[in-house]
Simulated assay, not measured.
Amino acid sequence: MAVLSINCFAQTSERIPTKGYALYTADGDLKPYEFTRHEIGENDILIETLYCGVCHSDIHQGRNDWSPQTYPLVVGHEIVGKVIKTGAKVTKFQVGDYAGVGCMVNSCRHCEYCEAEEEQYCLDGRVLTYGNKDIYHGGELSQGGYSNNMVVDEHFAVIIPQNADIEKVAPLMCAGVTTYSPIMHAGIKRGDKIGIAGFGGLGHMALQYAVALGAKVTVFDITDEKRDEALAMGAINYVKVRNQEELKGLNNTLCFILSTIPSAYDPMLYVNMLKVDGELAVVGLPAAKDAPKLTVTALGGRRKVWFSVIGGMKETQETVDYSVKNGIYPKVEIIPIQQINEAWKNVVDGKVHFRYVIDMQSLK
């Protein structure tokens, strides 16, 4: 792919030509797709996409697992690239800087949650990175990061430190902040006994953050395949939940559990492991047909269950800065865009080792 010139698109009124890979139907393959993005506004930056992570949410949303979608649809919300043009009023970025884009590209900016810097809970105008009606740009469909560029308001772009491991940083935009946020919100500290349910793209990030804080972490998964890696990353215990022997003695032992599971499971298995006042935070989002169910009366002992949604822009920046400073990155496999359909199948089958990241320079 030819690198875009910083002198391209001289007039901000011009729409931006873009190449990507899109789904044309919910059950089809991703295929090449050419489209245009909205013009560069005075507060916008144009990013040449370098890498984009492959999140299980891309698959759920693309396959209509949560709600009906409009096609063609370009997914991808773990985006990192280089700024190649800035709008007239941009102050946060300069041409040549690295920038990241996560799950949001706009919000109302005025509701109580936006003013509290938790734009992910915006009440009046949040626009997700793909598959959303962009009310700020004529109602066009937002298109994501499986593409060679992005146009985004600087407020919704994260500054990527120049010393970051750029091939690994993209998943911090979703998998990173999605796990960092609830762990920090729960106030996890040194010596706390906690659990992480599901040891995939999100789970292995959660383990690294929890270990960095000094927590004693038990990892739960359905297979033995990642046991050695979990222990090497600092887990004190690894439990194969399909082995009843390994589950013995765990009830009423943990103060916090983070569920990253993206498929059907029984949440009561983990609720029962919580101590009095223990908390189960849920970030994994299975397909609607597989949504986990709880019985309220089973939450005895002041146990709490809550759902966390990514993080606001301030917290996303904090996640990136903390991760780079402490050398916390996802384990990634870099792939060309031409292998994306095979990669999706591997994610669904649980065969990814831990996160696929697309090298967008492979897009022709």
Rank of each mutant, 00 (worst) to 15 (best):
D153Q: 11
L172F: 05
K289H: 13
K226S: 04
L250S: 02
F354C: 07
M360G: 03
K351F: 06
P286H: 10
S263V: 15
Q244N: 15
Q69C: 13
V347W: 03
H77R: 07
G131R: 01
I196P: 00
Y113C: 12
S67A: 08
I222G: 12
G249R: 14
E14H: 07
Q361W: 05
I328D: 09
K168M: 05
V357E: 01
L231V: 06
A10H: 15
G62W: 07
N252G: 02
K92N: 09
S362F: 07
K168L: 00
E225S: 15
G249L: 08
D359P: 06
G138H: 04
C122S: 10
Q94D: 12
I188Q: 01
F220N: 02
K331N: 06
L141K: 13
A88Q: 14
L50R: 13
R126H: 08
A298E: 15
D228H: 11
G87S: 11
T49S: 06
A22F: 09
I6D: 15
F256D: 01
W344K: 12
G191E: 08
S362N: 12
Y270S: 00
A210R: 02
R190K: 11
K364I: 09
D321Q: 11
I328H: 15
I257R: 01
D266E: 15
D153P: 01
L73K: 13
M313L: 13
C122D: 02
S323I: 08
S323T: 04
R242S: 14
V158N: 00
W306G: 12
V95A: 02
I310D: 04
A26Y: 12
D277M: 06
D134F: 02
T295H: 09
V357D: 00
A298N: 10
A206L: 04
C55L: 07
P336H: 10
A99R: 03
T223K: 14
T295C: 11
L202G: 01
L4H: 11
V3G: 02
D97F: 09
M184G: 01
Q244F: 05
K275W: 10
E48C: 01
Q11C: 09
P17H: 13
E78G: 01
G125I: 06
E154S: 05
V282W: 07
T18M: 04
Y238T: 11
V357A: 05
V101K: 06
M150F: 07
I84P: 01
V283C: 05
I335H: 13
Y265K: 10
K275F: 00
V352K: 04
C174K: 06
Q69L: 04
Y180E: 02
V241G: 02
N251S: 08
I166T: 03
V211D: 00
V219S: 00
M173P: 00
G311L: 10
N163G: 04
D27E: 14
N251H: 09
A2K: 15
A197I: 02
V74M: 03
Y238G: 07
A291P: 01
Y238Q: 13
V152N: 02
D65M: 04
T223D: 08
N148M: 11
L30A: 08
H353F: 08
H60P: 02
R242A: 10
G214Q: 10
Q120Y: 12
V3N: 13
A287R: 15
R302P: 03
D153Y: 07
R242L: 14
D27K: 09
T36Q: 13
V211E: 05
G187K: 12
L207V: 03
G28L: 07
K193N: 09
V151N: 06
